[in-house]
């Protein structure tokens, strides 16, 4: 009996939180127009959410590209198809690894920071203080961060992909001796703009929206204690990583799966 009761309680709690999350998103979206009126706030957040994540994105992108170059070459060379290395590297990055890995890194680097910052603002009564000064914290604090995240992630994912291709080029052409011209021309011929690149961009836009939503909501909704903030930060990384991987399957199935 107690198991059923616990299950029911858990279910109700989860749905209540989901509801709160959506109402929160609704209020955040309503606050977006005001962000454009105060552009400085957005630029400031783009700096901390986007620009400061650049290093990890560039370094990881380069390594992922290099690994793809190595693995791709070892497989393709058996079939004498190493000239297609450019296509393998580019398609893997553009369709999947660019948006997905960049989003996972973004969740760990910027998402957790957003949650911790907002959570600490809540626990030190800064959000409450703003409310009492007749300043809506959702418009002043949440909306600029949310918009900055939604804009930053697609750009970061694009940079990740571009740097990854350079990493693949460095290993394939520079170290393993694949033909320079074949690497680029095959890539140009086989990577389709709307089919591949745009679908990758759409993925990164969706991931940016979801990850930033989870991050700002977890911060805003956290229990205002040090333990509560730490739990919320962990939840941000876990939930957003799962959401990215789950959504990636759904989006891939819709875009490429012919399901």
């Amino acid at each position: 009996m107690s198991v059923i009761r616990k299950l029911g309680k858990w279910g109700l709690g989860t749905f209540e939180r989901l509801g709160r999350g959506h109402i929160f998103l609704y209020h955040t979206l309503l606050g977006i127009p005001e962000v454009f009126a105060r552009f400085g706030l957005l630029v400031q957040q783009m700096l901390s959410v986007g620009v400061l994540s650049l290093l990890i994105i560039v370094v990881s992108g380069f390594f992922v590209g290099m690994v793809l170059g190595l693995q791709g070459y070892n497989t393709l060379v058996d079939f004498g198809a190493e000239q297609s290395l450019g296509v393998v590297v580019a398609l893997s990055l553009v369709r999947e690894l660019g948006p997905v890995v960049a989003s996972l890194l973004y969740a760990g680097r910027a998402g957790s920071a957003l949650t911790a910052e907002i959570g600490l603002m809540k626990s030190t009564e800064q959000l409450s203080g703003m409310e009492m000064m007749a300043v809506d914290p959702i418009k002043r604090v949440i909306a600029p961060r949310f918009l900055a995240g939604c804009i930053s992630l697609p750009i970061l994912a694009t940079i990740f992909t571009a740097v990854g291709v350079i990493g693949g080029f460095f290993v394939g052409v520079g170290l393993l001796g694949v033909d320079d011209g074949a690497f680029w021309s095959q890539m140009q011929a086989k990577v389709d703009f709307s089919e591949d690149i745009m679908n990758g961009v759409i993925k990164s836009i969706v991931f940016g929206f979801v990850v930033t939503w989870i991050a700002v909501f977890e911060g805003y909704d956290c229990v205002p204690t040090s333990e509560g903030v730490s739990r919320a930060t962990t939840r941000t990384v876990v939930h957003s990583s799962l959401a990215v991987l789950g959504l990636d399957f759904v989006l891939t199935a819709l875009m490429f799966g012919n399901i």
């Binding site: 603002m121 009564e125 800064q126 409310e131 009492m132």
Partner: peptide
Amino acid sequence: RKRIGMLFQSGALLTDISVFDNVAFPIREH
């Protein structure tokens, strides 16, 4: 609320801006 001031137990100052900007915050907002 614009006509009510509240002093929180912790002060609730915004930690990322200076004392001057904290006091200027409600004036700039409203």
